[in-house]
Design a binder for these strands. Structure first.
Lengths: 349, 349
DNA sequence: AGAGTTTGCTTAAACGTTTAATCGGCCGCA
DNA sequence: TGCGGCCGATTAAACGTTTAAGCAAACTCT
């Protein structure tokens, strides 16, 4: 049994107005040749009958569904809400819907998730790749977010510049010894961030880098990082590569009797949702997700609608391979270095 | 110009095998009468030609798109990843896709978001309502998550029981004075949680409740909550209604010189993604989102596929109006009350 | 005024699927 | 042998849209 029609379709409008379906279609889309007087009548009748175009019918005919797939390495990632919200906004502003595909951290699941989305007929994909994911595979347009490694089809936050922002911030506060806190030495993103910090600090402060993951591999997960020692050695600032690690640094320092930011400044990265709520609120740097999403979606839409240049792999080529600047959020965990009472602790001046 | 076909369709397979499209369709779906010998041949040919059914064609014919809409009050909510991931998993296991609709906190946007999803032809909606949202409106099946107020069509975590879990946990640790930290006194969810805590603590400890939002309305957002005073008055545990507020409590206490959990235990709610990663890891309670999502999706699917009972508003009725039990995650921020030096504070033993 | 062009609409086909209706052949049965 | 029934397939219509092609009438131009 074919489904009984719920709402008005083009045929109903055409019948009510005594014209043909094609005319109604043309009138509504403004494409063919329709008399100027008829257009408002069609519009009004469509409104009155509560017409909503059948996306299925249109999709079948045009081959386009008006849906974009959003592929994420792991929805549980705390950065994801920002991305998802921005993408959803950008897409729906452009008249597209967002179908989500989660790969739950498994990169083999990721290609499978991509396949499912493609089979569902998405017009394009926005992919946030997991380290070491092969994307192309399919012949549908793809925009990649935040994988600075694959050039040409990518839009990402300018991690280097973000790091430089932090570096300059700390330099301006007069810090002379800054500990850089990374997690995984293999992460391109983290190295970009750290490189930006080092560059902005060079000439102002000496830096040292501590990697958490290798250290935990040795001493056990969740072990003390020994930040108190660094503070005792005269480091007055700790710049972490993520808010998560900044919080960890903050608590560890605090526990060891150092005050933030009076004794040691601490900075993070990414501005997670809680970063402004804690006391003291975390100084951090955030990506302009709205803009990143807008660029990703619009370049995708350009390819989908106008036939833009697409290389043989279906990857978007013409995209301004953008690096979107990040923004410093100076809050309470960073401040000027205080040398009031060096003898408070056993630091040597 | 009609889009040139990319992949094989039913017609191609039929031609290659010298049979009719209807037969191929029947063979693949196992519906009509097809000779047993033909079925594997069709299957194999379909595989070999890389056939993927056109969802658009099927949707047009059957009126079903195989897509569920997920409507969220605010994607930026840190609880969202859990929900989205669980729903996506449940839906894709059932062969459905998930189209997201965010209302960015605005409840008027929410109805509009719902409309967009319905126009896109979703077969059903999973709605996480914002306080005071009218849902029905449309005639498509709806499952509501986590709004305990509207009974009958809802699946939610058992917030009361979750609160009781926390209460019992703190009682077992010997706490005698517990500060309950809520945000908005008007929230049904929060009141459920607090009621559960109070019930489990009654007879073991006295409780007092502090609401953040009213307090911030008075003193300004982000102001100090004065938790140190409570601690000084002999409160040895602070049970928050969300991990966010627990983190805030933790940092504020920490700053005031109290140690967690040695001096004061702190507990949260919801187990956000970062709660186990921070140091010290947060003791909290989490909802079994997998199960909640499975119930929501399966009841939706039952309505969509079999014609289940649906009331005049299109809301799913037959659903076991489930309250899914929550689970205690005891980590590092809670511990036994230490009475090593009772004269530290003015508590009387 | 006749030829060509433009205007405003219609006709018809197509996208790929599902499914009701049909139909010839074969079997069993009286 | 004649007939009803089943089996295995086909034919055809339908879902709602877009769009190329066609066509009569009105308009333009020489």
């Amino acid at each position: 049994m074919p489904p009984q029609k719920q709402v008005a379709n083009l045929g109903d409008i055409a019948r009510a107005l005594g014209v043909s379906v094609a005319t109604v279609s043309n009138a509504l889309s403004g494409k063919g040749r329709v008399s100027a007087s008829l257009i408002p009548r069609v519009r009004e009748m469509a409104d009155r009958m509560g017409y909503v175009p059948s996306l299925a019918g249109r999709a079948l005919r045009t081959g386009r569904t008006g849906v974009l797939g959003l592929v994420l390495p792991d929805i549980a990632n705390p950065l994801f809400p920002q991305i998802a919200q921005a993408i959803e906004f950008a897409a729906s502003s452009a008249g597209y819907g967002i179908l989500i595909g989660d790969s739950r951290g498994d990169s083999s699941v990721q290609t499978e998730a991509i396949h499912r989305l493609v089979e569902r007929g998405v017009d394009g994909l926005v992919v946030v790749p997991r380290r070491g994911t092969r994307i192309s595979e399919s012949d549908c347009p793809v925009a990649v977010i935040d994988s600075p490694s694959t050039p040409g089809n990518t839009v990402s936050a300018d991690h280097w510049q973000g790091g430089a922002l932090i570096g300059a911030h700390l330099a301006a506060f007069g810090h002379r010894r800054v500990l850089l806190l990374g997690n995984n030495p293999a992460s391109a993103v983290q190295n970009d961030r750290l490189a930006g910090m080092r560059d902005a600090l060079s000439g102002h402060a000496e830096t040292e880098t501590l990697w958490i993951e290798p250290l935990e591999a040795e001493r056990g997960v969740g072990s003390v990082l020994g930040l108190a020692d660094y503070a005792a050695r005269g480091f007055t600032a700790i710049a972490a590569v993520s808010d998560l690690h900044a919080l960890r640094a903050f608590t560890e320092l605090h526990r060891a009797g150092f005050r933030v930011p009076e004794d040691v400044s601490v900075t993070g990265f990414d501005d997670f949702s809680w970063s402004g709520v804690i006391t003291p609120a975390l100084t951090t740097v955030r990506a302009d997700m709205q803009r990143i999403a807008a660029i990703a979606v619009s370049s995708l839409v350009r390819v989908i609608e106008g036939r833009d240049n697409v290389d043989e792999d279906g990857l978007v080529v013409s995209t301004e391979a953008a690096r979107v600047p990040m923004q410093l959020i100076a809050r309470q965990t960073s401040g000027p270095v205080r040398r009031a009472s060096p003898e408070d602790n056993d630091k040597t001046e």
